[in-house]
Amino acid sequence: MKPMSRRALLGGVAATTLALAACGNGVGSEGAAKLDARVDAALNYLDVNFPGTRDLQQKSVGMLVMPLITEAGFGFGGSYGRGALRVNGITVDYYSAAQASFGLQVGAQQYAHVLYFMTEEALAEFRASSGWAAGADVEYAVNDRGANLSAETTTALSPVIAVVFGQAGLLAGASVEGTKYSRIIP
């Protein structure tokens, strides 16, 4: 069997990402008002189902709320979604999130996530970048006790905390690591 070239791999990843971007995930054409309504609904869901996130929200200097991420894969995979950056409860920018992957994966899922920026420096770095990629510097607050969300002391001191929630589908393991966020105009 002939090994896959780097060009073929990148072409497959790009095609998968474009296909996901073209999927109607309910956000695209309705503009900013529709996106803000979805962000409000996602934050309300967190408040009701994970009351521990209220403390994160109050302590954060900004939040990137991605109310719907669609992820699919069959060998090549990717995810795409749109959301809003809120500072002091007000939307200041809109962002897209895209991720590409390759490996043993089959299925699709949808989920939501929020990035809590806990320091002014982390928020400023995110806003100044032309495309910010989530990496190892993002800490996760995990849902380990039913409806209670835990953020340990070390997590609470991290510059960026991620909360992934609302997973539905047949592809296991949602993560924001390796996701690239880019500013958009809805």
Rank of each mutant, 00 (worst) to 15 (best):
L35Y: 07
N25F: 09
S129Q: 11
L46D: 04
S150I: 12
N49T: 13
A168I: 08
E139I: 00
T17E: 13
R183D: 10
A147G: 12
V92H: 05
S175L: 09
A42C: 07
M1T: 09
A97V: 02
A14K: 12
T16H: 08
P186S: 13
Q110N: 14
V39M: 08
L18G: 10
G81N: 02
A98I: 09
F117H: 06
R86K: 13
K59E: 15
A156R: 15
T16K: 14
A22K: 00
C23D: 10
R145E: 15
L157N: 09
I185R: 11
F126K: 04
L68A: 05
D93T: 04
A98L: 06
V176R: 02
Y95P: 01
N148M: 12
R38V: 01
G77K: 00
G166N: 13
V106P: 04
L104Y: 14
A151V: 12
I90P: 01
S60A: 15
Y95I: 04
K59C: 05
Y95G: 08
F102H: 11
F76W: 06
R7A: 14
L68P: 00
S129L: 05
M66W: 04
T16S: 10
L64G: 05
G103N: 08
A112P: 00
H113C: 14
A172C: 08
G28W: 05
A100C: 04
L43P: 04
Y94I: 01
L20G: 03
L56S: 10
K2F: 06
A15Y: 08
A21N: 12
D144K: 01
A37N: 05
E177H: 13
D55E: 15
A21S: 12
F165R: 02
Q110G: 14
Y94T: 09
Y181I: 01
L18I: 01
P186C: 10
A72E: 03
E139Q: 13
V48C: 10
Y140K: 03
V61Y: 09
S129G: 12
